[in-house]
Computed example of a mutant assay.
Amino acid sequence: MRILHTSDWHIGRTFHGHSTLDALRGVLEALTAQVREERVDVVIVAGDVFDSATPAAACYTLLSDTLLALADAGAQVIVTSGNHDSAARLGFQAALLRGGIRVLTDPAAIAAPVTVDDAYGPVHFYGIPFLEPALLRHVWPGVRAQRDVLAHAMDLVRDDLARRGGRSVAIAHCFAAGVEATPQLERDIQQGGLDVVPISAFDGVDYAALGHIHGRQTLAENVRYAGAPVHYSFGEGDKPRGSWLVELNAEGLSRVEWLALPVPRRLVTLRGPLENLLTDAAHLAAEDAWVCAVYTDTLPERDPLRRLQERFPHCAMVSHAPADARVDDGRTYVQRVRAARSDAELVDMFLQHVREGEGASEREAEILRNVLDERVRVEVLT
């Protein structure tokens, strides 16, 4: 059996204010072509199908079009809900979907797998939707965190599998121990402490298809994250996009292969003085990419985003990080002001404070001396 493991489509997510729907549609069309070319039997979408619990109508259209295209390509499709999805909204039309497309969002049905047969017999797919401990404590006594609810869910899976026999695949959406997260991106499930699920929780199945982490990761040969199909932040820019092609033989897991997906527009982070970013020929290749520009001038520049977009039309983010960062001497601004021995030093202290360490230039110091001297002359005359 050939299984395609994908996750974290996040339909409806924006990229620094720009819609990603068209880009995602193109990538999912490429994924559908891979399903047809590789003769995939089952496609798994491991949660975070939508980016919001209340997706716009266009998001539902893209999902419906893609699910139908995957089914037409010859695959059965199994979808679970993630922490960004509304399980109720994603699952409400599950009974109305055509045969071969299953949407699993009910924790009470974890031990009722979707079974798909191949030449070697049945393969049981256990869909574990995102499990919120606070909502399950009255149903599963004793659960307090993600590791508890996943452990309970997998116990249900193992108990059912012991009765049925055969090969098995678990689908879950969580932080598993050992993952490398993208800062400020994979939100809403905390990493650390009790919210991290140990890899051992997934013992007993032939393959665990995980979602939630946006970069591909292999925690064990049979426990993997596929990541998101498109880049949703500059922090992901160096992470490949694709999905895992998983093969099961008569004994269980036999082979796993990475299938790369096209990147609609590259993500590039440029760093240097603003004038260098605006003129250096070394940055020519970035002119058609999404650009995050970090300019290192000592002082903030006027309207840097507009100026950068004249060269890089897809510059989406600009930040100022002076190369000569201020060294903190431990004194507060008030303490520095009180230590000033003259009006000139007082003004210089203020400039250092607002300019992140840069005091008056030679020309500014000259103007400042002239102004202060003029003030003294006026005071003497009056």
Rank of each mutant, 00 (worst) to 15 (best):
L305S: 08
L278D: 06
Y333A: 06
L278I: 05
L277I: 06
G330Q: 03
R331L: 07
D328S: 05
E366Q: 14
A285M: 07
R271A: 06
E301Y: 13
V291F: 00
H314G: 01
P313S: 03
D280Y: 14
M349G: 05
V263Y: 14
A340S: 13
A344M: 06
A323W: 15
R331K: 14
D343H: 01
E366N: 10
E301V: 11
A365H: 15
L351G: 01
V294R: 01
H283C: 03
V354C: 04
R338I: 09
D329C: 05
V380F: 09
D328R: 06
F312A: 04
H320E: 09
T332V: 10
H353T: 14
L351W: 11
T279E: 13
N276E: 12
Y295A: 02
A281C: 04
R355L: 01
E362V: 08
V327T: 15
L372S: 02
D280S: 11
L346Y: 00
Y295N: 03
Q335G: 10
D324Q: 14
E287L: 06
A325D: 12
E345P: 10
N370D: 12
H283R: 08
A281D: 15
L284N: 15
A285R: 14
L368E: 12
R306C: 04
E310L: 08
V354E: 07
T296L: 04
Q309S: 08
A282W: 00
A260P: 14
C292V: 04
G272W: 15
P262Q: 12
R271N: 10
V376F: 11
S319D: 09
D343I: 00
R271L: 05
E364K: 06
D303I: 01
R306V: 08
R306K: 12
H283P: 05
V268T: 15
A316N: 09
R307Y: 10
L351E: 03
D280W: 14
E362L: 05
R302I: 04
V354L: 04
C292S: 13
A260S: 12
A365S: 11
V327Y: 11
F350E: 06
A360T: 15
D297M: 10
P300M: 06
M349H: 11
R302T: 08
E379Y: 13
G359P: 01
Y333T: 14
P262K: 12
A293P: 09
S342F: 02
L267N: 05
Q335E: 15
L372H: 01
R302F: 04
D324C: 06
A286F: 02
G330E: 02
V376D: 15
F350N: 05
E356L: 04
A339M: 07
T269V: 09
E379D: 14
V371R: 01
Y333M: 05
H283Q: 09
W290G: 00
G357V: 02
Q352A: 07
V334W: 08
E301I: 08
L305P: 03
P273I: 10
C292D: 10
E345K: 08
A293Y: 05
D328G: 02
A316F: 08
G357S: 04
D343R: 00
R331M: 06
D343L: 02
L278M: 09
A281I: 04
R331W: 14
